[in-house]
């Protein structure tokens, strides 16, 4: 029980993409004593690497609807019992299959949004998306559009209505995160960086990749700039900024409702 409140606390403490995520208590599959038991199991066996509440650490975060190595529940049970060869994810062969199934349900619940009723008309929202919103000049959705901004194909599974609305009104307030390969995340995936090059030119764009010596920026025109940090005169990181325009005034409150309804309906099922 205590652990329950603990996981929601963690949830408030860190800004993560699945904002407004439900307490796992509301999950229909796991409840009561069973939930408490599996949560204990998770804390004792998994949190070491996956973080308390599955927030990530040296191992991936579970706060996402899709897991690369565990697309189905059966695949996840296999991952838990047999591990992932060549990684620190050793097989938990000493757990029972039952325990592995419960852990699977629990891990899934961490990445799932609770159902919610969203006002607005998703049909009208769709028209705004395709028309005056110009959204597809940056976003890709079910294969259409420009792909450098987040893929919105299943955004309704990843983000709740409040979060979606904020993304439209205050872009940059919440940043989707990018687990840079093999590195402790979460890194904001679209951090805006402004640099002054050796020749005095100013460039700005979103960070695609960074290490101690190199920086790859994507400028607003979509072009990539591969830079050596030592050759730069200045480098400024601008957290909170976004290349996405705010739609707070461009659209009426009703239109925003429609757009949110449309985005919330995008579940990625083909």
């Amino acid at each position: 029980m205590r652990l329950l409140s603990l996981s929601s606390l963690i949830w408030l403490a860190i800004a993560a993409p699945l904002a407004g995520q439900a307490d796992s208590a509301s999950d229909p599959v796991l409840a009561g004593a069973e939930l408490a038991a599996v949560e204990r199991l998770f804390v004792s066996q998994c949190a070491r690497c996956h973080g308390m509440g599955g927030t990530g650490g040296i191992a991936p975060s579970f706060r996402q609807p899709k897991l690369r190595r565990a697309p189905t529940d059966d695949a996840m049970v296999r991952v838990i019992l047999s591990g992932i060869p060549g990684t620190a994810m050793a097989g938990f062969w000493n757990l029972s299959e039952d325990e592995a199934r419960q852990l699977t349900a629990y891990v899934r619940s961490l990445g799932r949004l609770p159902p919610e009723r969203v006002p607005g008309d998703s049909g009208r929202g769709r028209a705004l998306y395709a028309g005056p919103g110009n959204c597809s000049t940056c976003h890709i959705l079910a294969g259409d559009g420009a792909g450098w901004a987040p893929d919105l194909t299943d955004v309704g599974r990843r983000l709740n209505a409040a979060f979606l609305r904020r993304a439209l009104i205050e872009p940059g307030a919440d940043q989707p995160v990018l687990p840079l390969p093999s590195v402790h995340g979460p890194y904001p995936a679209y951090l805006v960086i402004e640099v002054t090059t050796g020749s005095g030119k100013t460039l700005s764009g979103t960070r695609v990749s960074e290490d101690d010596f190199t920086l790859v920026l994507r400028a607003v025109d979509g072009r990539l700039h591969s830079l050596e940090k030592t050759s730069l005169k200045a480098l400024r990181k601008l957290p909170g900024q976004s290349p996405m325009p705010s739609y707070a005034t461009a659209f009426s409150a009703e239109q925003l409702d429609d757009l949110v309804a449309y985005l919330a309906s995008l579940k990625g099922e083909q």
Partner: peptide, 30 residues
Amino acid sequence: QMSSRYFKAPVTYEPGRFFMGGGETEFGGD
């Protein structure tokens, strides 16, 4: 240079299993 939030949890020893009594959520990224 990294911080985290440290949690304590109840724990009992079972041979051949993790015996840690808590965990952390790390403050990673930038």
